[in-house]
Design a protein around this nucleic acid. Sequence first.
RNA 1: GCCGGGGUGGGGUAGUGGUUAUCCUAGGGGCCUGUGGAGCCCCCGUCCCGGGUUCAAUUCUCGGUCCCGGCCCCA
Length: 421
Amino acid sequence: MTDFQRPRGTRDFPPEEMEQRRIVEDGLRKVARSFNFGEVMTPTFENTELFVAKSGPGIIDEIYAFKDKGDREISLRPELTAAVMRYYVKELHTRPKPLKLYYMGNCFRYERPQKGRYREFWQFGAEIIGAPSLDADAEVLALAYYSVKNLGLNNTVMRIGHLGVLNKFIEELGVSESMKVEVRRMIDKRDFESLRTLPDGAGAKQDVTNRLIELVSLDGGSETLEKAKKLMDGDDISLKELKKLLNILEKYGITDYKLDFGVARGLDYYTGMVFEIDAPNLGAEKQICGGGAYSLSETFGGQPISSTGFAFGFDRLMLARSQDEEELSKLDVYFIPISDDARMKCLEMVTEIRNNGISADIDLLGRKVGKAFGYADTIGAKTAIVIGDKELAEEKVMVKDMATGDQTPINFSELLKHYQN
RNA sequence: GCCGGGGUGGGGUAGUGGUUAUCCUAGGGGCCUGUGGAGCCCCCGUCCCGGGUUCAAUUCUCGGUCCCGGCCCCA
């Protein structure tokens, strides 16, 4: 016998899980719409060069890249931002600014699967394009913040940083360009040990190194700003910006964040504010959201334009909230016809009820009544209806409450009304 | 790419170098020909793949593959 397996790192989702996923998805959509973001969708695959342009040729090793039958270099998208920016540059750039977009879709990466990491996964993201302001940064942060809150994920931490602050320090270190990239990586990894060796190996200034380590070790709310100020000797523009941003966030009702200058995001197209949201209960892959202010349009051949955005790891959101299971929706009514004539009548009633937004199902196996009730019970139907020739003659059905076992006679004409209450 | 732990019906498991591989559960049917949740009975369905050792491998061994956790990476 041939054993057909799922490709590695992919998943099947049963109805119960899909219901949960749709609840989360609907919740995210709802919040995004309430912020006046509009949804866009882009292709599942793109020309490989798009992702190379954004992330460099090394990316090819980590994504599903292949040649199609026309010898074109194609890749399954490893993320959604590149495609959205491509779309913006080619077609949406004449739209009134600011452009507020959101999107959700499956993405693919050729990676070793582990908890919260799959080869096919889903992202939900949002961008504000063309609003080069702290107000846009705050609006995006607020969307991410309230999306998480709305899902009931209370055990999460939003960490906000600023690359302007970080980069100033890195510049002052006085190390080579390649070393700067390395330093950023160390900071992102919280690798303080390696940072400490910078003065020896890479010739970084000892004093700056010390202050840099102190900076990225800071951990706290808005009061942390003062500590950072002292480390920077004087009023830094980025720091002032950050202060303004935090003031704005307060108006959004957001104060339970952490300032973290170690949020480096590992990418050089980020320009200012950057942030991440963690769900600490997820283990190694605990980051559920990442984003910030960036400039990417020019990479795809457009005019430079300021943007701010983020992406949620949808599957990680699901993992993070999986502890509090919600009750699944139950079938409203299960029809059990006993004769062929009764079945015909049932179909009319089933259709009428379904057309009024009430869920209804009907026995398709011709089971005996006892078995059919057993099935109705197993699937958790709220009520069941048996119809035979007797009921047909009286134009009545017996509606049985599956929880209590009570039966109520209802006229055919009253049936819909009964369920609408 | 690397490290560790795993893989026995759909799900969960027991067990073994050799007759018919255990039990639970789920699914289908019957006892019960118009009323569910219990019980009893029947049916369905399994040793991840390949090489090696052996008279004989689900068992031992090697490789692969997939799953779980971690490293690397994380656009």
